[in-house]
Structure formats: C-alpha cells, structure tokens
C-alpha cells in the first residue's frame, strides 16, 4: 500500500471505525477481565487519535525513502510501537473518560482486542480493500 498522508489518515479512520467498531462489538463480552463497552470503545478511540499522530511520524520517515513507500511489513510491525504506547497510557490511567478499575484495565483484554483488529485491518488493506474500491489504491488511499 502506497498512500499519501491524507489517504493514510482516511484509510486508518475508515478501517478502525468499520472493522475496529465491529470487532470490538463482537469481542467485548468475551474478553478476559470483563471490560464494559464504554472502556473498549474509548480505548479504540485512543488508538485512532494516537494513530493519526503516528501517521505524521511515519510520513516524516517516508520522506527519507527514495520510493516514498511503506513496506508491507512495516504496516504489521508498527502494531508494536502503537500498541505499547496505548498500553502505557492506559497503565498510567491517562486515557480520559475511562472508569479505571482498582486493578487497572485488564491487559489481556486490551491485547486480544488490539491484536485482532490490527491483523484484520492489515490483511484487509493489503488486498481485499481493492475489490470494492477500485479507485482507492491509485488515489493515494483516499476514500473521499
């Protein structure tokens, strides 16, 4: 996927709203530690907001690449830094709006939800997305 900054942000919002929203809806009742919907969706929102900031960072890195590309692998491994930052903020109880339980947000609940969403979004953007949206890949990943 070789989108522009605008396209990356649009795609990220689209993916997290559609897939993130649906997966969180289905997974929340099954997650360990029984987090409520309010908590899981607020975490999803935090991933989304921080993700837009991350895109700015990635954009700067891209400028140093001759091809102005973003290898497929990078799209997967950036789960590590992005996930770690969100978890750190959760651990420090810095994500606003969440009623933090006394023993904190359950780690495995976060880990499972985050990982499943990331994998599905990564797979979808690297192929199937091109089926319904034929203009998307030539349009810098922009949806509108």
């Amino acid at each position: 996927m070789l989108p522009t900054l605008n396209g990356r942000i649009q795609t990220r919002i689209f993916m997290l709203v559609v897939f993130g929203g649906l997966i969180t809806l289905v997974l929340t009742p099954m997650l360990p530690g029984d987090p409520d919907y309010r908590t899981t969706y607020l975490i999803l929102a935090a991933v989304l907001v921080l993700g837009i900031v991350w895109e700015l960072v990635y954009h700067v890195i891209q400028q140093f690449r001759w091809e102005k590309d973003w290898p497929t692998m990078f799209g997967l491994i950036t789960a590590l830094n992005e996930g770690a930052l969100v978890w750190l903020l959760l651990d420090l109880e810095l994500v606003p709006g969440i009623d933090y339980p006394s023993d904190g947000v359950p780690f495995w609940a976060f880990f499972i939800d985050f990982t499943v969403i990331w994998l599905v979004v990564w797979i979808w953007t690297n192929g199937p997305m091109r089926v319904p949206f034929i203009r998307w890949r030539f349009f810098g990943g922009r949806i509108v």
Binding site: L2, T4, W66, E67, K68, D69
Partner: peptide
C-alpha cells in the same frame, strides 16, 4: 531501484 519508477508514482506521494 526496484521498479522502473519509485514505487509511489502509482498511487502515493509522487503520483499526487
């Protein structure tokens, strides 16, 4: 260079 143009000419930054 991997291909005959830098990769982003087909949809990314250089195309735009």
């Amino acid at each position: 260079q991997g291909f005959n143009y830098p990769k982003s000419v087909w949809g990314g930054q250089l195309k735009a």
